[in-house]
């Protein structure tokens, strides 16, 4: 990497790190340190292949998705994540919307990384199923079933979601 490429990389990181960090944060289930590790690892891989990467942001995102799942498979990141708000506050106070949001966060943090990754891709990144499949390197059918199972798992972890929320496509699955 020469000086100009290094500047381009720095410009890229400077411009896109907030968005990439938000993504890493969600993938890591709200664990800031794990998110930093995840993004840092992805950036290190990206800089090593910088000369061959045409679309750096897409590349970093893909590395993070796959890295997160890979780490999970190795067990490196199977640790309990924490949510900032104490449960008493979440359950007994504030508006229903806030309460549900906090409960859902806690439930999302407890999902398996692959389940969480699918939900992040579908609902945070707004990617269609076919693109999610391409990013994760699996079939569209797997994306669909994983999404369904992930949402069903959320309902188990967060009973507040059982009603009146409906899982789209549940009847078809």
């Amino acid at each position: 990497m020469d000086a100009a490429e290094e500047r381009r990389f720095r410009d890229f990181v400077s411009a896109r790190s907030p968005a990439l960090m938000r993504l890493a944060f969600l993938l890591a289930g709200g664990d800031q340190h794990a998110a930093e590790d995840l993004l840092q690892t992805a950036l290190a891989k990206t800089v090593a292949r910088w000369h061959a990467v045409d679309a750096p942001e897409a590349y970093v995102r893909q590395v993070m998705y796959r890295q997160q799942i890979s780490w999970w498979r190795r067990g490196a990141f199977r640790r309990e994540t924490t949510v900032a708000e104490p449960p008493e506050w979440a359950v007994q106070d504030a508006t229903h919307a806030v309460e549900v949001g906090i409960v859902v966060r806690r439930a999302l943090a407890k999902l398996a990384p692959r389940q969480r990754a699918v939900l992040v891709l579908r609902y945070f990144e707004d990617l269609p199923e076919a693109e999610v499949a391409a990013v994760l390197g699996c079939s569209v059918g797997t994306v669909r079933s994983t999404t369904h199972r992930s949402l069903a798992r959320l309902r188990v972890l967060a009973p507040e979601l059982a009603e009146p929320y409906k899982i789209i496509g549940e009847a078809m699955a």
């Binding site: 990181v13 938000r22 944060f25 969600l26 859902v104 609902y123 949402l151 929320y165 409906k166």
Partner: peptide, 24 residues
């Protein structure tokens, strides 16, 4: 819908991420 709840939750939660210094 639950999709909307998840989408809304993810969006708000992501805003709590802190960008560390010195990434590059």
């Amino acid at each position: 819908k639950i999709d909307d709840v998840v989408k809304d939750t993810l969006g708000r939660w992501a805003e709590e991420a802190t960008v560390p210094q010195g990434l590059a």
